[in-house]
């Protein structure tokens, strides 16, 4: 009985000594700034910065000199904090952005050219062999939700009409959906701006009208309506110069196909969501 206790105690001491020795001998010094920066980052591992995870970005900042303002999700706040840790100055001139889907041609507005039975994925459906997808409009949203699945922040959902909707509160403008959309319909727009041309159809007016009810037909009514000259037509689509736009809303009123819309601003939605919930309850 006693011998058992002694043997156990002695071997415990011996192994403990080996472990203590190993811990010192094989100690890997870790720059504690990596840990600090990792804690500053949002931790979503979205890889929008070009690194595999938040952790690897933090490491890259410290050991490889990666830019301190690469985290699009954290934005200016995180960038200035990381700059503080690294003792450098952050260059912060970019204004906050949000994703916007430049198409509203859902099931009710944009007819299909054929019955599609294939894989439920926009990339698969937009292959040339499938004529770019089952929509008559070759530029429009296919509605299979590849962008929704790509969003690491749950900031997108499929609308009732088969066109994705961006939850502007949750969107961090990481740009994952922009990459995912094979039709290149999603753009990062200034978060403060609320008027957008939500059509990407480059067909001439009569053709565009045939393939979608809410297509931009390049009539130029918005260009004439705009008092500050912020709208121009490029490739048969109206284009708003956000730096000039005063958000007067004249173009929204004049657009005959309603492809220029006014989205609720972030501040508005925050108040609005609550009251909407209140009504439902």
């Amino acid at each position: 009985m006693i011998s058992a206790v002694v043997i156990l105690a002695l071997s415990g001491l011996a192994f403990g000594a080996i472990l203590a020795f190993a811990a010192r001998k094989f100690f890997v010094p870790v720059d504690e700034r990596i840990e600090t920066i990792r804690n500053l980052l949002p931790g979503a591992n979205c890889s929008a910065c070009g690194h595999a995870s938040c952790s690897s970005y933090a490491e890259a900042v410290v050991s490889k000199g990666a830019p301190v303002d690469a985290c699009k999700v954290g934005g200016a706040a995180v960038a200035s904090k990381i700059a503080g840790v690294m003792g450098v100055e952050a260059v912060l001139d970019e204004e906050a952005k949000v994703a916007e889907v430049m198409c509203r041609g859902g099931r009710s507005a944009a007819p299909h050219s054929y019955e599609y039975m294939g894989i439920s994925d926009c990339k698969a459906a937009s292959l040339p062999m499938l004529h770019g997808g089952p929509k008559m409009c070759e530029y429009g949203c296919l509605g299979f939700g590849t962008c929704v699945r790509s969003c690491p922040f749950d900031a997108m959902y499929m609308g009732d009409d088969g066109v994705p909707v961006v939850d502007r509160d949750a969107c961090t403008a990481c740009g994952k959906c922009v990459e995912a959309c094979p039709k290149h319909l999603i753009r990062l727009v200034p978060r403060s701006k609320k008027i957008h041309v939500v059509c990407s159809n480059r067909d001439r007016g009569p053709v565009a009208r045939k393939v979608c009810k809410v297509a931009c037909i390049a009539c130029g009514a918005c260009v004439r309506a705009c008092k500050v000259g912020a709208i121009s037509l490029r490739d048969n689509v109206a284009l708003i110069d956000y730096s000039k736009c005063t958000e007067c809303g004249e173009c929204v009123a004049k657009c005959p196909t309603k492809c220029i819309i006014e989205v609720p601003r972030v501040e508005d939605t925050k108040g609005g969501t609550q009251s909407a919930q209140g009504e439902v309850a």
């Binding site: 294939g118 894989i119 994925d121 990339k123 698969a124 292959l127 499938l130």
Partner: peptide, 9 residues
């Protein structure tokens, strides 16, 4: 299964 479509993608 739509194998060819998947592989083409």
């Amino acid at each position: 299964r739509p194998l060819v479509q998947a592989i083409r993608t």
